[in-house]
């Protein structure tokens, strides 16, 4: 009995040096969401004039969210020939400088105002709040059966001139604004 106990302690001691950042039972959902946001860039086509504009691809985070910190991990990476930049967005006027806007769930009460401000621009809106897609957002994360899932509302995306690949639509839950 004692031997087992000591053996266990020694066994554990061996692993001291390597501690990846992970918790038990699964990966944090916001991390998986961040990875999805990164992935989405490959499955969505922005209008050509926007694609040509600059060699930077900007993701803005509106409202206080740890998504900013997570996405910073990807900052400077090259995706589809452009370099990723991650910015917090403080006011509505700055929204239009981005390609993707992640709207923090803390801003739920201002959602209509935000979507209004984005009207007419080719910006992909992403969030994880209740009824986001239903209220005119484009991609909304949720969790079912311990896995990250997302809803897509294709209509506002189409209006914004964004083309969402059928592969992405196939694995999403398609929501239509009533």
């Amino acid at each position: 009995m004692k031997k087992i106990f000591i053996f266990l302690i020694i066994l554990i001691s061996f692993s001291l040096q390597t501690f990846p950042n992970e918790s038990f039972g699964g990966i944090r959902e916001d991390k998986v969401q961040a990875a999805f946001i990164y992935k989405f860039i490959q499955f969505i086509e922005w209008p050509t004039e926007i694609e040509k504009e600059s060699n930077k691809f900007k993701i803005g985070i509106y409202g206080k969210s740890n998504m900013e910190e997570l996405l910073q991990t990807f900052s400077g990476e090259k995706v589809n020939g452009r370099f990723l930049e991650i910015h917090p967005v403080k006011n509505l006027n700055d929204l239009k400088k981005c390609h993707i806007i992640f709207i923090s769930p803390s801003e739920a009460s201002k959602l209509n105002e935000i979507l209004e401000a984005l009207n007419g621009s080719s910006i992909l809106t992403i969030s994880r709040m209740k009824d986001f897609a239903l209220k005119g957002g484009m991609i909304n994360f949720y969790v079912n059966e311990e896995r990250v899932r997302f809803e897509i509302n294709p209509e506002p995306a189409r209006n914004a001139g964004l083309k969402i690949s059928s592969k992405l639509l196939k694995v999403s839950k398609v929501i239509r604004t009533p």
């Binding site: 039972g25 699964g26 998986v32 990875a35 499955f43 592969k167 992405l168």
Partner: peptide, 13 residues
């Protein structure tokens, strides 16, 4: 994409 969809997550932070 498919692998991400299959990742088990915890929201229990």
């Amino acid at each position: 994409l498919d692998e991400l969809l299959d990742i088990k997550v915890t929201s229990v932070a």
